[in-house]
Simulated assay, not measured.
Amino acid sequence: MKILLANPRGFCAGVNMAIECLDEAIRICGPEIYVYHEIVHNKYVVENFTAQGVTFVNDLDEVPHGAFLLYSAHGVSPELREHASSRNLRTIDATCPLVTKVHLEAVRFAKQHYNIVLIGHEGHDEVIGTMGEAPESITLVETAEDVDQLEFPPGSKIAYLTQTTLSVSEANTVIERLRERFPHIESPPKEDICYATTNRQEAVATLAPQTDVVLVLGSQNSSNSKRLAEIAAGMGKPSHLIDGADEIAPSWFTGSETVLITAGASAPEVVVEQCIDRLVADYDATVEVMTIREENVQFQLPKELRVLQAAER
């Protein structure tokens, strides 16, 4: 067996920042820290922090008054921030800056009285947070068919935004339909879909034709990881989204000579290494790293955490 190891893969700058943020918060404040929703959508990461004593909550009323609360990488609504303030929670904002960019765009368009069409997946943490910035101005769509159902008064100003972790091709299909129906629709100066999401999708699309099977490391609730598996499947390749090596099934590799391994932006490298080790042990696999694009993006830790770090000195 030959393994093609996609590069780039795994953690993006926003996930790196969020995880470093929680690591530092634990170091400075101790493990009695609460996180609103999962810090990132990955089972391995969440279980690792839970084992250290971190508590993940979906309701702020579960957080004791005055406790440390960290917002996940996916962002939160202004309403939730106000609720946290009313409980005197000491908050640390680990929202990915690229998600914050979408929030600010929503606020800007809403202030200018635009009808905002948000392209995204209903119920996703990021979408909930973005819509919370201007709930009366934003309409959510997932597909081109959803666009056909939109009705705005004649002469309305219309703009669109996108969830950062969408499939580029699927988002473009919806955007094309929006432009057909609303030729004067406005868009952000720079696209919202995250650079890392785009790069990982490009790597799969480029490398999948050279392989027999595709393994995507990532959790089922990770939007960007699911998109990678869907892209490979759409190219006719057997594709499996897994959390780790213990989910690998030997039946996947019958008659297969080449396997592509990649990882979603919230999946740690350790789970990739464990899968490689499993295939090397079971199939005497060799590994070839396939670099499609270089990445060097970094985000600094949030201000609240830098203040805590400075207080140590």
Rank of each mutant, 00 (worst) to 15 (best):
E20R: 13
D23R: 15
E24G: 15
A25H: 02
R27Q: 15
C29R: 11
C29I: 08
C29E: 13
C29P: 06
G30F: 08
G30K: 14
G30Q: 12
E32Y: 02
E32I: 09
I33M: 09
I33T: 13
Y34C: 13
E38T: 14
I39T: 01
V40K: 04
H41G: 10
V45S: 06
E47K: 10
E47F: 07
N48I: 09
N48E: 08
F49C: 10
A51E: 14
Q52Y: 06
Q52N: 07
G53A: 14
V54R: 11
V54A: 10
T55P: 13
T55R: 15
F56E: 15
V57E: 04
V57H: 10
V57P: 11
N58E: 06
N58H: 10
V63Y: 04
P64I: 12
P64D: 08
A67K: 04
A67R: 08
F68S: 12
L70K: 09
Y71S: 11
Y71H: 13
S72F: 12
A73N: 03
H74V: 03
G75W: 03
G75D: 05
V76M: 02
E79H: 04
L80A: 01
R81H: 10
R81D: 11
E82G: 01
H83N: 08
A84F: 01
S85W: 02
S86G: 03
S86M: 05
S86I: 00
R87M: 08
N88Y: 03
N88P: 04
N88K: 10
L89P: 03
R90K: 15
T91K: 06
T91E: 07
I92L: 11
I92Y: 01
A94H: 12
T95K: 03
C96K: 02
C96P: 04
L98W: 05
V99L: 00
V99Y: 04
T100R: 09
K101G: 01
V102K: 00
H103D: 02
L104Y: 01
L104V: 06
E105A: 04
E105H: 07
E105S: 06
R108K: 13
A110P: 08
A110S: 12
A110K: 01
Y114K: 11
Y114P: 08
N115Y: 00
N115G: 07
I116G: 01
I116H: 06
I116Y: 01
V117F: 00
G120A: 11
G120I: 08
H121T: 08
H124T: 13
D125E: 12
